Computed example of a mutant assay.
Amino acid sequence: MTNAGINRRTMVLATAGMGVVDPLQAEPTKGAPVAKIIVGFPAGQATDILARMLADKLPAVTGKNYIVDNKPGQGGSLAMGALAKSPADGSVMMLTHMSAVATNPHMYKSVPYDSLKDFEPVGLLGDLPFVLVCHPSMPFNNVEQLVRYAKDNPKKLTNASSGNGTVSHLAMEDLKSRAGVEILHVPYKGSGPGLTDVVAGQVSLALETAAAVQPFVQSGRLKALGAGTTKRLSMMPNVPTIAEQGFEDFSAVTWLMLLYPATTDKQLVAGTFGAMNKTMQTPDVDARMRQIGALPRFSASPAEAAAFVQSEYAKWGKAVRRSGVRLD
């Protein structure tokens, strides 16, 4: 069979939703259709990095070209609103995260979408673990010492977050509540600006994704105090978890999922699901994900992903109500 024949067969399989092709058999060509992957955070953050990996790998399976469109603001909700209003023809999708789907609708007085009605879930892509870091000048090296210092110096410390309603915000509020300490929350539009201010010493702390903090920790510009996972991260094996430092069951991890607008054709959703899983579960991508601090996690089907959204929406609604956090 000629290369042209192979490419035609590849496109038929992808369109039919099978997604079973050799990535080396199909290379997008000039003039190929272009699809957009929306990200609710600035370029360079963990979600953006994974979206760009996806945009780089998908063309070999689908024959389309992909661009990443960053729309930061309101913890990902502005981007979700944009997706909800996008055409349901496969030209626009979003790599979203837990907060935008499951916590923001409960936390904000109004968001421009309905998480349960406005989207077609494709599938989970991975989990992003968070790590608590501080400026190197801070007089503590672990969570126990941080808590002691915060109690002796109430309201002296500050903590940055990626925005109101994000995991970096809610999980830190949970930690402060458990520890009985007062630390001023300073929200930013993404982890980048917040971490920049922590590195500069203008803010004391940040609970952010391992992918975002790793370069600063490696260069000595930030100190890692604890990981928000149940087990130590392979990329930071010497950093104890926050749970093993006296906060049992503490968790700061967010999941990532690919979404289409509601009413997108089910075969198209299934085709994208197959293409995403095939490209993102290759050994080189798996290794790269773990290298940046992402933990691969995939759905069994789009239906399972939709059921997961339903359960997470209910679960985090209860958590937000318990927290008492409510934003305009």
Rank of each mutant, 00 (worst) to 15 (best):
M1W: 13
T2K: 11
A4M: 06
N7W: 04
R9S: 08
M11D: 11
V12R: 07
G17L: 14
V20A: 08
V21Q: 04
L24R: 10
K30V: 12
V34P: 01
A35F: 02
F41P: 00
I49W: 04
A55N: 00
D56E: 13
K57R: 15
A60F: 13
G63P: 06
G63Y: 05
N65Y: 00
Y66C: 04
I67D: 04
Q74K: 13
Q74F: 15
S77A: 15
M80A: 14
L83E: 06
K85W: 05
G90P: 05
V92Q: 05
V92N: 09
M93W: 15
M93N: 07
M98S: 09
N104M: 06
P105C: 05
K109F: 01
D114R: 06
L116T: 07
D118T: 14
E120K: 06
V122H: 03
G123H: 08
G123P: 00
L124C: 12
L124H: 12
D127Y: 12
L128Y: 04
P129V: 01
F130Q: 08
L132R: 09
H135Q: 05
P136H: 08
N141A: 07
Q145N: 04
V147N: 04
D152I: 09
K156Y: 00
L157Q: 07
L157E: 03
T158I: 14
T158F: 12
N159Y: 15
N159S: 10
N159L: 05
S161E: 05
S162Q: 15
T166L: 10
V167K: 07
S168K: 01
E173N: 11
L175K: 11
R178T: 14
A179P: 06
A179S: 11
A179I: 10
V181N: 03
V186C: 04
P187R: 11
K189W: 07
G190F: 03
T196I: 11
S204E: 03
A206C: 10
A206R: 03
A210G: 06
A211R: 01
V213D: 00
Q214E: 06
Q214W: 14
P215S: 13
S219I: 13
R221Y: 02
R221M: 13
A224P: 05
G228A: 10
K231T: 13
S234R: 09
M235W: 05
M235H: 05
P237V: 10
P237W: 10
V239I: 15
P240Q: 00
T241N: 03
Q245P: 04
G246T: 09
F247K: 11
D249C: 09
S251V: 15
A252D: 07
V253W: 11
M257V: 10
M257T: 08
M257F: 04
L259G: 07
T263M: 13
K266M: 08
L268M: 15
L268Q: 13
A270C: 08
T272Q: 12
K278P: 06
M280L: 15
M280T: 00
M280Q: 10
M280K: 00
P296F: 01
S299L: 06
A300Y: 13
A300H: 09
K315F: 12
W316A: 02
S323Q: 02
L327T: 08
